[in-house]
């Protein structure tokens, strides 16, 4: 399987220009970008990402503003790069669906990553009217049973998001042997890449993820770098991963 690596940025964070510049630069190395749309009660996120979301909400920045930035990123990034939206179910629930679907199709949004939508509630979200060309990404976790791993892996579109640890974003990546076995089981049954995310913040953990999975996703580490030293911080972090 060809490697499929992704990075997460919160849309328009810390500001619109820095976000766009970081996204375009990152997509020179990564295969896909996850754009976070801020939600007030992000239960799957740790402090770093939750605080970034709150900053945007306080400034009244949401999907409307971030979608404009995504159009600019699309104009600058190589066309084969993928973009996903990462947010929580209530924002999708409240979307004006026709407009949302046309935006996603025009900008080639590949899918939605919704951390509060487990496999058993995917149909509920689909029934809100999300276009069938927009994938709803499947999660597999160290807690998933073998049966559900096989089922999710077989039916997954775009990629399988393997949540590589119990907990929320910003924790530590340290898969135990049972988790390793589950990653292999997912790989055996999936026709799309099995990508490891949550807790991957260094070159070393990324290398491990690539070795045992089909790719890695990193996010909190970039938000921390943006917080401490803006775009140059982001750029340094990026180089750590790829040079």
């Amino acid at each position: 399987m060809k490697k499929y690596n992704g990075f997460y940025l919160m849309g328009n964070y810390p500001d619109k220009e820095t976000f766009i510049k970081s996204a375009v630069e990152g997509l020179k190395h990564f295969d896909f970008l996850e754009v976070g749309i801020p939600f007030s009660d992000p239960i799957a996120d740790g402090e770093t990402i939750a605080d970034a979301a709150q900053v945007l909400i306080d400034r009244n920045i949401g999907f409307t503003e971030i979608s404009e930035s995504i159009k600019e990123i699309r104009r600058s990034a190589a066309p084969e790069k993928d973009i996903y939206l990462m947010t929580y179910s209530n924002l999708i629930y409240n979307m004006e669906m026709d407009g949302f679907n046309s935006f996603c199709i025009e900008q080639k949004i590949k899918g939605l990553i919704l951390p509060d939508v487990p496999a058993c509630e995917k149909d509920f979200i689909r029934a809100l009217g999300v276009d069938k060309n927009i994938n709803i990404i499947s999660f597999i976790t160290p807690e998933s049973s073998d049966d559900s791993i096989i089922e999710s892996a077989k039916s997954a579109d775009s990629f399988v998001y393997f949540v590589s640890m119990r907990g929320i974003t910003g924790g530590e990546f340290n898969p135990d042997s049972d988790t390793m076995r589950k990653i292999s089981l997912a790989k055996e049954n999936a026709s799309v890449p099995v990508v490891l995310g949550f807790g991957i913040r260094s070159r070393r953990s990324a290398d491990t993820a690539i070795e045992i999975g089909d790719g890695f996703i990193t996010g909190t580490a970039f938000i921390e770098s943006l917080n401490s030293s803006g775009y140059s911080g982001f750029k340094n972090r990026l180089e750590e991963f790829f040079i």
Partner: peptide, 20 residues
């Protein structure tokens, strides 16, 4: 059996918690 009272209810949590 999916936890719905009519159209309200459900299980909108991280996949990690489903087994629990």
């Amino acid at each position: 059996n999916k936890g719905y009272f009519g159209k309200f209810g459900g299980r909108f949590v991280a996949e990690t918690l489903i087994k629990t």
